[in-house]
Amino acid sequence: MTLKEGKTGMTLKIKQIDDSSLKERLMTMGLTPGTKVKVLRAAPLGDPIAISVRSYNLALRRADAENVTVEQVG
């Protein structure tokens, strides 16, 4: 699955980040393979989402989250 399908409360482990213009920025912000992220909540109408990664919170759109392949771990 990808981060795009993440539902509130899910804990996910990043497997891979696909090439996109945002890839390097996402990785710099701590979204590296192996990192666990937790989906915290969604903005009105479900998009963008807020995730907790490396003990801080980051907001991103589902369209950009599609490039992040994850597996559910909790």
Binding site: R25, M29, Y56, N57
Partner: peptide, 11 residues
């Protein structure tokens, strides 16, 4: 094309 949105939500 559309835009992106990547933003830290500070405490």
């Amino acid at each position: 094309k559309g835009s992106t949105f990547l933003l830290e939500l500070p405490p």
